[in-house]
Design a protein around this nucleic acid. Sequence first.
DNA 1: AGGCATTCGTGCGCGCGTTCACAAAGTCCG
DNA 2: CGGACTTTGTGAACGCGCGCACGAATGCCT
Lengths: 231, 231
Amino acid sequence: MPIERPRRRIPEATVARLPVYLRILIEQTNEEIESISSDGLAELAGVNAAKVRKDLSYLGSYGTRGVGYEVAFLAYQIRRELGLTHDWPVVIVGAGNLGQALAGYGGFGQRGFPVAGVVDIDPSKVGSVIAGVRVRHIDDLDQIVQTRQVNIGVVATPPSAAQDAADRLTRAGVTSILNFAPVVLAVPNGISVRKVDLAVELQILSCYEQRRMGVGLQAIGLRDPGRGASA
Amino acid sequence: MPIERPRRRIPEATVARLPVYLRILIEQTNEEIESISSDGLAELAGVNAAKVRKDLSYLGSYGTRGVGYEVAFLAYQIRRELGLTHDWPVVIVGAGNLGQALAGYGGFGQRGFPVAGVVDIDPSKVGSVIAGVRVRHIDDLDQIVQTRQVNIGVVATPPSAAQDAADRLTRAGVTSILNFAPVVLAVPNGISVRKVDLAVELQILSCYEQRRMGVGLQAIGLRDPGRGASA
DNA sequence: AGGCATTCGTGCGCGCGTTCACAAAGTCCG
DNA sequence: CGGACTTTGTGAACGCGCGCACGAATGCCT
Ligand SMILES: NC(=O)c1ccc[n+]([C@@H]2O[C@H](COP(=O)([O-])OP(=O)(O)OC[C@H]3O[C@@H](n4cnc5c(N)ncnc54)[C@H](O)[C@@H]3O)[C@@H](O)[C@H]2O)c1
Ligand SMILES: NC(=O)c1ccc[n+]([C@@H]2O[C@H](COP(=O)([O-])OP(=O)(O)OC[C@H]3O[C@@H](n4cnc5c(N)ncnc54)[C@H](O)[C@@H]3O)[C@@H](O)[C@H]2O)c1
């Protein structure tokens, strides 16, 4: 099988959907389903069928007209494009409420993101064990990143310490950061940052709720009795 | 002061940025700064200044040319647009690893999203107390939603139970859902859903890392010694 | 073999969001 | 009071992503 390089740069929006397709394909594999059409995949992913086909076409022409896509093969192609053919160990900075929940969550390891280490600045946290992983001091960060070949760091510190955490991560050699603190991180060029801000998500929902109810109802604190339109 | 209705529908992308501006404005208020320019706000938010001005212009003309925006007043306008002039109690379904972290996180209450209740289907979880909130049985969901006027629900159950949790939430009268389970939820028309999928975020970062390293380097497992381009 | 049904791959137009650039509008200061 | 300076608000151009619609390819059945 010839190694086929992607013809074009894959759009950001497509990259964000590929993981969803991949998860669905894995579920299909578990149910022994060998083939799936763009329509079926679109239904399960909650998107347009044409969008599915266009997304997948960036990977190459891996479908069979009149039939669909071979589930296992397509899953492999998506994995290859996303760089999931091997594990990406991650290091978590901040062993608080959230950091512990993340470290204790088995789902990451299963999906190819084993927790290479958890670090904290608080001496009282250092040494405790979370889901088999011992919390180490943040000064050990460089060593963990080096020896475990870590490229991805997770920031789970309070907002005031998040920039410091990001600085230490980049200095240690990490090139991608997933940030849970509600702050905008400044990082050197070439470093990728994605943020997960739960408060922002809730505030967006709040905006929808706000629009859903009439101004009058809101003022006197009544519930909107009917269901509005718009998904 | 006349109540001014927004001239146009505010774009989705802008709504997603308003919470970021708001958080920055609140920080500025805490530092006793009364005025800020679009340039300053753009810097702190990590976006283009023109984008800031266009975003804010959807709210109305609340800036002063030659000066900037009055921090407190602008914050109020954003709050009004996002529907943050009053609290939005939320109910959390699933008192596991993540549900407990969320319920125990004080940041939500501070930002106007008090936890009205936590429910679980597991009898052994029911009755335990998390950060002052007693976990109740999921059969009590309707009552909690009714009496506490809950519009927003959070799904923190295992993937297999997420659709069931969403169904119960919508049946109870919730109209917005924040979903942490890695599944695509099917909901009736008019119900808003936002998902937070940490595995997807990591996989997107993985894709960037994949692109960062040359194919040859990846094959033999070496670290990329240099820093690539592209933020 | 041929016709038919199915499904992929994609060209194309459209609408949204981003960014530039600039006039309008205000401040500041002598 | 007037001119220089600052900053907003927005028209316009651009690019990207979405979805339609259709040709092309493949399988299946007779
Ligand atoms: N817990 C949640 O459910 C939740 C929800 C949304 C957002 N967040 C955000 O996630 C972040 C973490 O939340 P949390 O509830 O786990 O907070 P937490 O206070 O429980 O934990 C923070 C941890 O970070 C450590 N820390 C502080 N400074 C550090 C530094 N410079 N280097 C390394 N470690 C440091 C602390 O010792 C502590 O253990 C916060 O920014 C919070 O806003 C949390
Ligand atoms: N923990 C994390 O850090 C993390 C990270 C990413 C994603 N997630 C996702 O968040 C979800 C929750 O994760 P978790 O680690 O808290 O799992 P968990 O197993 O610790 O908790 C799930 C809870 O949901 C309850 N539950 C099960 N079925 C229910 C039902 N029908 N109605 C109400 N409650 C029900 C269970 O009793 C349990 O208490 C999962 O979908 C997981 O994939 C979690």
